[in-house]
């Protein structure tokens, strides 16, 4: 699936992912988790990689192999450095009035494996979930 980087597309992305996860045989709880994680990853791309610039491309690929679903999301925006990410506590967030950082935390909690690849101007996030 190729979409334009805009929050208007999030509903379409969620439907695409949920439909395929069901087809791959996941139960509803896993379908919800996978869908949420793809939303979070795409939202981060829209906000941080593309800094809200509309029309930039996001590619989403879904595959099922050996009882495991692999989600690959590719963008061409600013790269994300996972080593610089610090897990926020809700108390910290409240005191700093910040509202970001939770998406990555959700992805780490809900998916079985996550990795980030940066090559030249291409960023790729790969997430897997076992059925």
């Amino acid at each position: 699936m190729r979409i334009s980087a805009s929050t208007e597309e999030l509903e379409k992305i969620r439907k695409f992912v949920a439909d395929h996860a069901r087809e791959f045989g996941f139960g509803e709880a896993d379908v919800s988790d996978i869908t949420l994680c793809v939303d979070e990853a795409c939202t981060n791309i829209i906000k941080h990689a593309y800094e809200w610039k509309k029309g930039k491309p996001i590619h989403i690929q879904l595959a099922m192999k050996n009882n495991e679903m692999m989600v690959t999301i590719v963008d061409q925006g600013k790269p994300f450095d996972p080593d610089s990410y610090q897990v926020p506590t809700p108390e910290e967030q409240l005191s700093r009035k910040k509202r970001s950082g939770y998406g990555i935390l959700l992805i780490r909690k809900l998916m079985d494996h996550v990795e980030y690849l940066n090559r030249k101007s291409r960023n790729e996030i790969r997430m897997t979930k076992k059925r």
């Binding site: 999030l10 969620r14 949420l36 939303d39 979070e40 939202t43 809700p90 967030q93 409240l94 005191s95 009035k97 910040k98 509202r99 970001s100 939770y102 998406g103 935390l105 959700l106």
Partner: peptide
């Protein structure tokens, strides 16, 4: 029916 962290962030931003 659905909430993502962007939705939760709104509660975080105004509660204080």
């Amino acid at each position: 029916e659905y909430i993502s962290s962007a939705g939760l962030g709104v509660f975080m931003a105004y509660i204080e």
